[in-house]
Design a protein around this nucleic acid. Structure first.
Lengths: 193, 193
DNA sequence: TAAAACCGTTGATAAATATCAACGGTTTTT
DNA sequence: AAAAACCGTTGATATTTATCAACGGTTTTA
């Protein structure tokens, strides 16, 4: 269960973890299983845990006044899911995070994470790398959203995230891109020729 | 010149900087002045520096096939400007960053920054805080972009960033929001009554 | 295994936003 | 002081995207 996380951390920092560090990490991250559709986080709750996805797929979304869901993130194996805003500010979350497939997580509280970070330099390094990659990805997505038409946005997404296309149904991809499922359906039809 | 940066760092970490640390920082950050319209970064160049804005205002934008500018960031005093993607990956930047007003910067290379981070824990702490705040802000902006109409997006922006409204002309705000200047003009007219 | 929920598609229409062109009032440049 | 560039606004029109409703083919649930 935890090997996957250990491997991930080793891949995202310079010096590999020592045996002691591995033990610390294994002790601090709790395994948790979610059945499809189960919530990891519900709107209105304060987000208490960060989760590392060992197996499965999840989505993060908000629900507007009309009851329409807006997907803000899609997650699969090796992704980290949480609502940082809620967790850090201790405010009720505006988002839901739930399992799209049966999912296995390793979860940790912020307090335990901060604790671990004091003891394990590689973890700090990994988080910095993660933050960097995240900032870059967000930047790209934002730029794409304000600069491109729906069609180009879909093309770019499909190019950069083919795994997601196969893993999530079209209407979730559409919502992620900020368009309706009908529009996406028409875009795909058009770009066939 | 450097006091503003020192203050900023102290405000964004726990323990205040020691005199030695302050000296190190002052030695590593180079002052640089930009006249209005001067580039800090030009599309196609690799971004070599991170800059802290002591005084003035800048903007970051991409230019599409048709020559239309798309504002991805607006910056004023106490903001950090750079293209992380380019700087980290050492790839040519897709963006321009230029001065909207006469501007005073403190700039530092990535190598010097990494060096400083090894010597000054408070700096690492500050950067983590910065990354966190940044991730939260980006999340909010993304969510707003995919969930809201142009009108609501403008309202939210005006509420959260009144300083920007006063500092930058309307057509830049429009571009930042991903709409045309005409549409923004009409939105504002409408919401008057 | 029957019923229900889900998913992608299509058509008709409405709403949001972009585009193009022009204007008058600034501010900046020469 | 004149010319040029900039800025916000408005009108007319085109384009993009959303909305609403319905369908047939899955897959899931009971």
């Amino acid at each position: 269960m935890h090997e996957r996380l250990i491997t991930y951390i080793n891949n995202h920092s310079k010096a590999p973890l020592t045996i002691e560090e591995e033990a610390l990490i294994t002790a601090s991250f709790q395994p948790k299983k979610l059945r499809k559709k189960q919530y990891f986080l519900q709107e209105g709750d304060v987000c208490k845990h960060t989760s590392f996805i060992v197996k499965g797929a999840m989505r993060q979304y908000s629900v507007d006044d009309k009851g329409v869901e807006h997907i803000v993130h899609l997650y699969i194996e090796n992704y980290w899911a949480s609502d940082r805003e809620s967790m850090i500010m201790l405010t009720p979350s505006k988002y839901n995070i739930d399992a799209w497939e049966d999912t296995e997580l390793l979860i940790i509280t912020r307090a335990d994470m901060l604790d671990l970070m004091e003891k394990i330099p590689a973890l700090v390094e990994m988080i910095r790398q993660m933050d960097e990659r995240n900032a870059i990805a967000n930047q790209r997505r934002l730029n794409s959203t304000i600069s491109n038409t729906a069609e180009k946005r879909y093309e770019e997404f499909a190019e950069h995230h083919p795994q997601f296309i196969q893993r999530f149904p079209q209407h979730l991809i559409a919502s992620f891109l900020g368009i309706t499922k009908e529009t996406l359906s028409r875009i795909r039809k058009q770009s066939l020729r």
